[in-house]
Design a protein around this nucleic acid. Structure first.
Length: 567
RNA sequence: CGGGGCGUAGCGCAGUCUGGUUAGCGCACCUGCCUUGGGAGCAGGGGGUCGGUGGUUCGAAUCCACUCGCCCCGACCA
């Protein structure tokens, strides 16, 4: 394509609303524009990138036998009411009424509709398995859209759903999706991890996320480089560093005005790992006292998995429930439910004395208090791997894909059943699998850019090659550039030719900014010696190639770049 | 939803505290000349109801009230 005839509105300066690197660069390079909070338009370059990603996704989904279909975005409320999600989901669902007053909603995901389709069409075990997918718009009224196209209110999603007779079939499709996802993200040039994740409200037992490491992400994962353990910190298990305890006798110590673990730790000159941190939470079934080692923090998600939704107690509630001021709570002598992190099973600790301005020393679990034990602490850098004992690493990531084993969570309420070979009616066993193509694009930019702009992996670049005729008034420059453009186009290469009547500097800057992997510079300097210059956007390496070999060499170089992303 | 910040030309900003000619600057844009290997130069030019509404005042971008929008942190994230 011709630059002069393509809408590529590059910006010299970054619009002030952008914070994330991918947001800044995609705006500056003319890929996207914002319509309103969480609503983005994809301009020609942006759309080309999205199309490339979609194509890779389609190829790999088709390869595992998934079939593409397309469902509506507008859904009757009734189906969502049957699974209960109409009521469970709050403001995040866009709701509306049609002209007859019927309740409708905009699809945030499509489990309900896919399952509804399956419930009507699948009757026999002979119809199974099925894997259906779509690449389609989702709408979620996000509380806080952020980071450009990373978290938006309207976005395209590849969502697939597997329908099987039994758990074995589901396991099979789950594995196939893992293979497909690995191929997709590898082909898209991303660095990524597959981690264990919290199935959350999707239901079901097993779930994994595909995470692209980037400081711009919204999640943290715990990784063990030696055994490969990888999990979202929401559920990652870790062993806190071991502590050598002292054999303190049980005694009260005066700690005037010292409330937090840190304050008391400094005041007494004892490390925080020898403290018990007591936190009062209010749950659906009343208050819960949560105990952690002083050097640990609570992972609320873990607590919620045990007791349901919770919130920290207010100061007044602490006084009311425990009869002591917050800051001096101890684990002993309370009648409410107490749950402690397993790290506290052994040791001799200091904790609040349940008495203002006092702490107790020599507190022994099992002797002075008897809690329920659970894994409650948040895994942090330097903790040991629960699997193999090596040191864990915590990394910030962008969620680019997720996979869930759903079981019968949707098939049962929607009556999606089949008759097995004995004529018995059984619920279909389901799985659901998502990929956010816009996040794939954003993650690619986050992971691959420099001060000058984007550096696209060749597989998802809007064009693979950009030709830069430096002086449009120079006859030879023009004819050579056009000739290379034509030859490459004839060979089916995606080429952009910067045929604008701009100065060389402008063309260089824009080419770097929009991030096309290969630049072909056609200038008078090179032409004097009968050559053009081939520049690799990523390595910045330049090579002069004789005119007659130009097209050959460019395609060769392109092939070698492409080969790096092959799976 | 809680906390913070910001709305002045397409983009980046100054002016607002301390009200007072015709609201400025850089880039971009248009015309001409010139230039052509890293966002050139010169000359001329177009573009603003200062987010909106109401108020105070002789006078409001500037002060007050309400309101809308955008961004960041947190909560939430099926």
């Amino acid at each position: 394509m011709r630059f002069s005839k393509t809408f590529i509105p590059t910006l010299r300066e970054t619009p002030s609303e952008a914070e994330a690197v991918s947001h800044k660069l995609l705006l500056r390079a003319g890929y996207i524009r914002q319509l309103a909070s969480g609503l983005y338009m994809f301009l020609p370059l942006g759309l080309r990138v999205m199309d490339k990603i979609h194509t890779i996704i389609r190829e790999e989904m088709n390869r595992i036998g998934a079939q593409e279909i397309l469902l509506p975005v507008l859904h009757p409320a009734e189906i969502w009411q049957k699974t209960g999600r109409w009521y469970e989901i709050g403001d995040e669902m866009f709701r509306l009424k049609d002209r007859t007053g019927r309740d409708m909603c905009l699809g945030m995901t499509h489990e309900e509709i896919m399952t509804w389709l399956a419930s009507r069409e699948i009757r026999s075990y002979r119809d199974l398995p099925q894997v259906w997918y779509q690449i389609q718009t989702k709408l979620r009224d996000e509380a806080r859209p952020k980071s450009g196209i990373m978290r938006t209110r309207e976005f395209i999603m590849k969502d697939s759903y597997s329908f099987d007779r039994d758990e074995e079939g589901l396991e099979q499709n789950y594995k196939l999706h893992i293979e497909a996802y690995n191929r997709i993200f590898t082909r898209c040039g991303l660095k990524f991890y597959q981690v264990e994740s919290d199935p959350g409200m999707m239901g079901g037992a097993t779930a994994h996320e595909f995470m692209a490491p980037s400081p711009a992400g919204e999640d943290d994962v715990a990784l063990c480089d030696s055994c490969g353990y990888a999990a979202n910190v929401e559920l990652a298990i870790s062993i806190s560093p071991e502590v050598k305890f002292e054999d303190w006798p049980f005694e009260e110590v005066h700690t005037p005005g010292k409330k937090t673990v840190q304050e008391v730790s400094e005041f007494l000159g004892v490390g925080p790992e020898k403290f018990i941190k007591s936190l009062l939470y209010i749950g659906e079934n009343g208050p819960v006292l949560v105990l952690l080692r002083g050097d640990q923090d609570l992972q609320e998600k873990k607590l919620e998995r045990i007791v349901g939704q919770v919130r920290p107690a207010h100061k007044e509630e602490v006084q009311e429930v425990l009869g002591v001021e917050a800051g001096f709570i101890g684990p002993h002598g309370h009648k409410i439910r107490i749950i402690a992190d397993e790290a506290l099973k052994e040791g001799v600790y200091i904790s609040g004395a349940n008495k203002v301005d006092y702490h107790v020393k020599g507190l022994r679990p099992g002797e002075h208090f008897n809690p329920e034990w659970a894994d409650l602490h948040i895994a942090k850098e330097g903790d040991r791997c629960a699997n193999c004992g090596s040191t864990l690493r915590i990394e910030r990531v962008i969620e680019i894909g997720n996979i869930f084993k759903l079981g019968t969570k949707y098939s049962e309420p929607l009556g999606a059943t089949y008759l097995d070979d004995k004529g018995k009616e059984r619920p279909i066993i389901m799985g659901s699998y998502g990929i956010g193509p816009a996040r794939v694009a954003a993650a690619a930019v986050e992971q691959s850019h420099d001060d000058d702009g984007i550096i696209w992996p060749v597989s998802i670049a809007p064009f693979k090659v950009i030709i830069l005729p430096l002086n449009m008034k120079h006859e030879k420059t023009l004819s050579v550039a056009e000739e290379i453009y034509r030859s490459l186009t004839d060979r089916g290469v995606d080429v952009l030719i910067d045929d604008r009547d701009e100065r060389a500097g402008v063309k260089f800057k824009d080419a770097d900014l929009i991030g096309i992997p290969l630049q072909v510079v056609v200038g008078e300097k090179g032409l004097k010696s009968g050559s053009v210059e081939l520049k690799d956007r990523k390595t910045k390496e330049r090579e002069n190639i004789p005119l007659e070999q130009a097209v050959e060499r460019i395609t060769e170089k392109l092939k070698s770049l492409e080969a790096q992303l092959e799976v």
